[in-house]
Design a protein around this nucleic acid. Structure first.
Lengths: 152, 152
DNA sequence: TATTGTTATACTCTATAACTATA
DNA sequence: TATAGTTATAGAGTATAACAATA
């Protein structure tokens, strides 16, 4: 009977089953997948995911302040400043004096901003259904609801 | 009859309902929530989420190569080099010559690495159940399955 | 020729401290 | 004294190009 050589430690197929039991791992991988697709599709509009969220919230909440945006989107004020001024330079949004508080600034979409977001929201809808193409309508609804139970 | 002044555009409560219809938004917010918790709990071990994934895959796949790690975790080779050498300096992992391919390096956990990951995986389990405390066991299982249908 | 691992490097994202003007 | 917005800056994450050694 021949003596088999000690098998060398090599990995044929990587076993990821443990990581796949962790919610953090699954949520991160899924989020990155959708966001990568989003970034590629929105590149023509030069809108990153957070830019899109900011413009969308301004569009649906005319007069919203920077502070309110930061709270709603969980971003820090210093990191919003550059985005706002950049999008103001692109004439996508306008800053107006806040009627009650002279420290604050009310944010509004311009006509150009409204048009761009109209296109962008249509693109977003397409890319979302592409990213979730393997889920049924009921599964999508369930997934959204369960995700919101985590972060809301 | 008094003429009411034109109401100023101020936002009382921010309406986020549109964003909450987007999978990308929900997945990103939920992932960031779990990962923030993870980062804070793992700070004592100086393990970031990706470091944990790397050590975990090495632990469950002794002899795995950098290239295999990059493919499995969707990270780029140049961004793994620093992590590997840093964790080698901390004596958490060892690099051994690959038995068949002299270009490659097989990665293995040290005794110290095994002990640290044993603790870390226990912490991870705790923090995961904290992050998903509002979900039933069945909901957790469903959520994992649906997330995997997006990225796997 | 193609692949593994690596260096250098640039760009983006995120975080903290400190300032100003208003409340 | 506290808050809205801002500046400066440091650190972490992510991307591409190019190289040496080996397949």
């Amino acid at each position: 009977m021949p003596v088999l050589p000690e098998p060398a430690a090599t990995v044929e197929k990587v076993d990821t089953s443990y990581l796949e039991t962790l919610m953090g791992y699954n949520a991160r991988r899924a989020a990155l997948r959708v966001i990568d697709l989003f970034s590629r599709r929105m590149a023509v509009y030069e809108l990153r995911p957070v830019d899109f969220s900011v413009l969308s919230l301004i569009g649906h909440n005319p007069g919203i302040t920077s502070r309110q945006l930061c709270s709603a989107l969980n971003i820090l004020p210093p990191n919003l400043v550059g985005k706002i001024s950049s999008m103001e330079k692109r004439a996508l949004l306008a800053r107006k004096p806040h009627p009650q508080d002279r420290r604050a600034v009310g944010l509004h979409l311009t006509e150009l901003g409204i048009e761009l977001m109209s296109d962008a929201e249509r693109i977003a809808l397409d890319l979302e259904s592409e990213a979730t193409s393997r889920l049924s309508a009921a599964e999508k609804k369930t997934l959204m609801r369960l995700l919101q139970k985590i972060y809301l």
